[in-house]
């Protein structure tokens, strides 16, 4: 059961990831004061990064194999690209 043991990481790792996620949220808040298409893309990139951490680390998908990683990260990328496309075209 060694893979189960480490699937969810250590408490220290979780603490670091949580701090990074909170930092990224604050960054979104401050950067978001400004508008525009470039800023939209930047904020979506942050969202993708944050989402990837939740999916790969918290949901432990990095241990679940390519298919499941691909499905969830693919969803993240697809949705954010669609949003970015709409914001780019609408600008």
């Amino acid at each position: 059961m060694s893979s189960t043991e480490h699937a969810h990481g250590t408490p220290l790792r979780t603490l670091c990831l949580w701090s990074a996620l909170v930092g990224a949220t604050l960054a979104t808040l401050f950067l978001g004061e400004r508008g525009g298409s470039l800023m939209a893309v930047a904020l979506l990139l942050i969202a993708i990064l944050k989402g990837s951490v939740v999916a790969l680390e918290f949901m432990a998908l990095r241990h679940a194999g390519m298919l499941w990683c691909g499905l969830v990260i693919g969803w993240l990328l697809l949705v954010c690209s669609l949003i970015a496309f709409a914001y780019w075209k609408g600008a």
Binding site: G32, L43, L44, V54, F58, L76
Partner: peptide, 21 residues
């Protein structure tokens, strides 16, 4: 995993609805 999913969708919802303009 279900609870993380609720978190995950909010991570897009927040910038989309509240921030990006």
């Amino acid at each position: 995993a279900y609870w993380h999913m609720v978190d995950l969708v909010w991570l897009i919802l927040f910038p989309l609805v509240y921030v990006i303009h």
